[in-house]
Amino acid sequence: MIATMNEVLILSGLVFILGAVCAAARRNLIMILVGVEIMLNAAGIALVGASLRWAVLDGQVFVIFIMAFAAAEVSVGLALIVFSQRRTKSVNADSFSLLRG
């Protein structure tokens, strides 16, 4: 036995929450993107664990998809960061406040 399913889920949950905290707490756009990456990765861990637990390959297949989404998201996200950095000379999320009510 490698681990119990519970332990895999706890690991995955911890990493996910760390990513969420990162996305919510950091003000740097790049760090927010990093937080999102961490969260996606954590979901991957849970899926791989579940794939082993039920001996079904679909979990691993979904990790492939997640990786593809992450790649797409990062490429567009970073392009956006570059784009906005050109405009505002800042990568601080708080300097974008046109939506303020």
Partner: peptide
Amino acid sequence: LLFSSPASETGLIAATA
């Protein structure tokens, strides 16, 4: 929630795809 699940202690047996 995790610890209250009855199936939480299921072990993962090594296997390779």
